[in-house]
Structure formats: C-alpha cells, structure tokens
Design a protein around this nucleic acid. Structure first.
Lengths: 349, 349
DNA sequence: GTGAAAGCGCTAACAG
DNA sequence: CTGTTAGCGCTTTCAC
C-alpha cells in the first residue's frame, strides 16, 4: 500500500484534506468544516481554506465521506428493460430530479430474458454493498420478494409503477383502475361493443388493475369482455395475442381492444394494419396505456391513457428523500397519480 | 458518531468484518482474505468464516473496500438524452456487459436543453468525487473539453459514438464515412438523383462524418448534393428541415433524403407522409442511420445504415477494462466498427 | 471557533 | 497460512 505523501503523478484526485490543511495552515477539521454545509466555519479560516483548496484543485472524496457518514447520496434504480420507451422517459425524469438534489443514480437493468432468479439476489447484494441510500424498483416484472428483501435491510424502497400485496413497502403508481375504466368508457362511447383486452404479464399488478378497471366499467354498462389474451409486455407475445384475437372470421372479431400498455399496442397495430389489413379505427379501435413518446408520432397516433410521469417521478423522489432523512422508520405510503385519456387516431372521432 | 458495537436495529448491513471474525474465532484479515478472490485462504478457516458470515448475514462493504483499494468498480456513463431509442439500447447493452464483469453503472443524463455549460463541470466533479474507475461518454453533444478534463484527471475515458479532434482520448464509433457512402450508393442504385441531407448537430463528429461519406460517394459518381438542412438531432428541428426541403414546388423537390439518424428520420417521415402527402418510397426515398429498434416496426419500416451496438459496446468495455487494469497509462485507441445497410420500405425494392 | 483524536469497514504489507 | 498493524480520506465528538 502506498505511503502517506507518495503521489502517483497524473491523478489529480489525490489531493486530500490534509494537503489543503497544510497549505492553509489549519487543521484538517477546519478544512472538513468549511466543506460541510452548516458547520462552524471561521470566517478567515474559511477564506484561506478555500484559497488553498482552489490552488490545489481539491475535490472531496465522496467515498471517504460515505464511509464516515453512512450516506452515499446514491440511489439505485432498477428497471427490467429499456425497450419500452416509457422507461427511458421515467429514467430521464428521475435522474433529473435526483441530480438536482445532489443524488446520483446507480442503474441496474434486470433483463428478464437473460437473467435467472438467482440474479435477483446478486442485484440486491450489490446494491446493499454500495450502501445506496434508497432504491426505486421501476420494474414491473420484479418479484415482490426482492422488494421485501430490500425493505428488511432497512433501506428505503419505493415501488414505481407497480404495487405489492404486502403494504409494507411504499409505492407510486397511476390510478390504473380508473385508467381501465376510462378506456372502457371511451370505447363504449365510441360505439365499441365487442371489446377485448390484451394483458401484460399476468402477475403484474399494473396489468391486473388496468384489466380490473376495464371489467368494472364494462360490467357497469352491462357488457361482457369479448376476448382476452396475454401479451407479456413484449412485442412478440403481443403480436401473437393480436393474431389470436383478430385472425379469425370477421364475425368473431372484436371491434376494439384495450392493450395494457403502449409498447404492446405498437406491435398490435402493426399486425392489425399490415398483416391483417384491418382499418384503424374503422374496423377496430384501439386504446392503450402510458402515452409513451412514440404514441404521438405520425406512424401510430395511438389513443391512450396517459400516465403522469412528472407527478410519478416527483412523488417517488419526495418519498424516498423523506424516508432517507427521517430518523425513525417512516410508515410506507402509497401514492396514486391521476391518469388522463389522450385522444388520437386509433379511436373514432 | 456511533460507537463501535452499537447497532441501529433493522440495518442488517452493519454486520462487519470483525463481527464475522469474532464469531468464527479468527482474525479480521482471515475474513477479508476469504472474501478476496486469489488470497491465501485457509481451508478450515475459510469454512468457518463462511459459516459465520452466512449466519450473520454479512455483506462486504463496497465503499470501505473502495476507500482502501482505490477501485470502485463503478463506471460513469453519461448520455445526453434517452429519447432517441438508440441510446437506451446502448445503455442496456453496456450495463449488461459491465454487470457481467462486476462493474456498476453510475448514470448521468445531461439533458442539453435544461443544462448550462457550467453543469458540465459539476458533472465531472461528481464523477471524480465518486472515484469512478472509468467513464464512457455516449453523448454526441458533449464538449471535447469535458473529455479532455476527464482524461487529464487520469481516469480512463472512452468516447462512444463520437470522436474527438485530439487523439488523446480513446473512442469507439461506427465507420460513419463508409456508412455515408453506403447510403449514397444505395440511393444512387435505386435511381435517386436529387439527393438531400439532413444533418444532426453541426458540431457532431458523427453527423459530419456521415455527411462526408455521402458527399464523397456522390462526388465519385458525379452527382451534386441537392439540398441540405440541419435537424439538430431533434424531432422538431428535423420536421422543420423536412418542410424546408420538401414543402416546395415538386420540381424543386429532392427525390431522396439521407437523414443523419433514425430518430430524426421518424419525424421526417411523418411530415413527408402526413403533412405533405408524399408517397414513400415512390415520391421520395429515405435512408437514415442507426437501426434503432423502432426502425423495423410496421409504422416506419425505415431503410437504414445499422450501427453494430454489440460490437461497439463490447469494444467500449474491453478498452475501458484494459485501461483500468493496466498500471501504466495506455495509449488512446480508436475503434471503428463496421456498418451494414438494412433494406426496408423507405427505399424502392 | 478550533485542533486532536477516534473511528467508518476494509485491505495489504509485514512478521511470524 | 495467519494475526497484527497501519493506513484509505473524511467526519465528528470532545476539550480547549
């Protein structure tokens, strides 16, 4: 191991507290204090320290600070995949907010297709090892088990865009039930009567709630669900689902579909329009969920139920920071953000 | 500050090396060694340590380890925005590779629109403070200056999908010039003679090279560039560029456009088809660059020059890890990955 | 307000 | 192979 004053040249970051202290002719605690907001800083001392620090190009070592304070100012965010543009949007918003408050994002992408269950543990371990101050689980496919694990390790967790059976852990999600109802109401109002649903993953709370809302509203209006398939949140499965529903005799076809998210809806629209030569919205109307960026693009013009990314991400960081700063374990809280329907060309005007 | 053995309950991560050592009845170094690969581990000792660690739920503290070893196993990756799906793809691939090798991704999103120049420094500072082992700059819009800064701080940097005037810093990028030539050749072969170009950001090396290749090939075939606009890598500017080029008398219209990336091309296609009611590829052919995921979707079916994300990301991590592990400063290296044209429906068959 | 000193949890000589 | 020990760079009592 290197000895005290030996410096490997070229590494500017090896300027330490004591170097600055030496140059400024004060103690290291003095230096530490001037770099710690809200500490008893001597006026003249501060000036000299700042000068010395400036001259030396001193940068506080966040790692050392973390070791000492047990606060890393790092938030782990885990997502399952970035293919669905909704998630990059979220990631961007989240990162922005966190950065503005002096936190940093340690990104974990848990690609479902290439990862086994055991990896879940690996992930968790790694997050814990890095002493992250908080975790946001923005992964619809993440097991509730993992959430529980995190929770019990004592570090704040918030479930993003999903909820958990156990109310122990905080969550932020859209009003998916209401969203499902909005979709149903819209479709009904536009004259649809043979309404089908394409689910995401069966065990995703998000998909379940959206379906639940759909069914409730349909039921309230005395109409039955016409068909149902599972799209697993993937392009391929969604395409298959669409074929299953629509590649049949016209008399057996739905006249509308509610797709659990925009991402799947793009695939659905492609098979409907291109493979099956169906007219949208004349032959079939479709409404989905999220309002991902591409939904508004000319190629799709998808009518959808919008999730309020801004509200969701803001709630997420505020809960997280709240829990982080609070000494006592804060009770879990569950935020439900409102949704709105945005009308485009996949429903009749 | 908390005293030695005092534990705040509920925080399982406070189990330390010495706790394990005590339970196992060995020294802390023994414990440390069994958790350090390639260390002289006593067979029986190891067994007992592992048992004790297991029982206590011990997790090595990566922060402490970092402080001691000066290796954080964290790589900073900075991107400018995630709206262009090419970047989420890259991020996912990068994260995958890095994770597999025991590294982690600290994500920085430098949203151009909301950030001032001074923030560049802030970013850099933060990365340095966290003692990141390496940096990948996957941001076309990032100033070369920042790259230089990083470089001089002694930590390995690789420019992703861009190059720098100064050859000091490593880079990984596609063969953009060849890509531009491929686009030109394709368009020429498909009968286009009035070929226009929509650039990204003027000072982006990537856009410059693509244009350069286009011009070179055009020139070799004795044809002049028919028109040129700047799309700034944004949907809005690209739409404007498309209007500028095509919202004119038919006699003055290009019969093909090469767009500097797919992201802009989507906007271009939308104005061409929807606003201007032009037939693609009959009235105008378009080819772009990247082969972003959506390019293959039914709504666009965009002919494009594909960047090999796999090759690019693999090269990136291999350079990075190489430089990290090498004691002496490794000379900068510049990887150029091959591109291929993928034919779809925006060019004639 | 300021300095001395004791850690934070782990690693890496070094001597046995 | 094992234990002892001296740090890594910073924060935070605790006296002065």
């Amino acid at each position: 191991m290197r000895k005290g004053k030996t410096r490997s040249p070229g590494r500017s970051s090896v300027v330490t507290l004591s170097d600055v202290a030496a140059l400024a002719g004060v103690s290291i605690s003095a230096v530490s204090r001037t770099f710690t907001s809200g500490a008893s800083a001597g006026k003249e001392t501060r000036r000299r320290v700042l000068a010395a620090a400036q001259q030396l190009g001193y940068r506080p070592n966040a790692i050392a600070r973390t070791l000492s304070t047990r606060k890393s100012r790092i938030i782990a965010v885990v997502v399952s995949y970035l293919e669905n543009q909704f998630y990059p949007s979220v990631l961007e918003a989240l990162s922005q907010l966190l950065q503005a408050r002096g936190y940093h994002v340690l990104l974990f992408i848990r690609n479902e297709s290439t990862s086994k269950d055991s990896e879940t543990d690996t992930f968790l371990l790694e997050m814990l090892q890095y002493q992250v101050d908080g975790i946001v689980l923005a992964s619809t496919m993440m097991s509730s088990e993992l959430a529980a694990h995190c929770q019990e390790s004592g570090i704040p967790v918030v479930l993003f865009n999903r909820t958990s059976k156990m109310n122990q852990v905080s969550s932020v999600a859209s009003d998916n039930i209401e969203g499902g109802r909005l979709a149903a109401r819209l479709l009904l109002r536009k004259g649809a009567r043979r309404i089908a649903f394409i689910a995401g993953l069966e065990d995703s709370s998000t998909s379940q709630e959206r379906e639940q809302g759909l069914l409730a509203e349909l039921n309230d209006n005395g109409v039955q669900l016409f068909g149902r398939r599972v799209g697993e949140y993937s392009l391929e499965a969604a395409s298959r689902a669409a074929r299953g529903l629509f590649d049949v005799a016209p008399s057996k076809r739905p006249d509308a579909v509610f797709v659990a998210n925009d991402h799947m809806a793009f695939a659905v629209l492609d098979v409907l329009r291109i493979e099956l030569q169906l007219q949208i919205p004349e032959d079939v109307q479709v409404v989905a969920f999220d309002n991902a960026p591409q939904s508004g693009w000319g190629g799709y013009q998808l009518t959808t139920i919008e999730q309020n990314v801004k509200a969701m991400t803001e709630a997420t960081v505020s809960i997280l920071l709240e829990q982080i700063s609070s000494e006592v374990p804060t009770p879990a809280c569950h935020i439900v953000t409102p949704v709105t329907t945005v009308l485009r060309r996949t429903t009749k005007s």
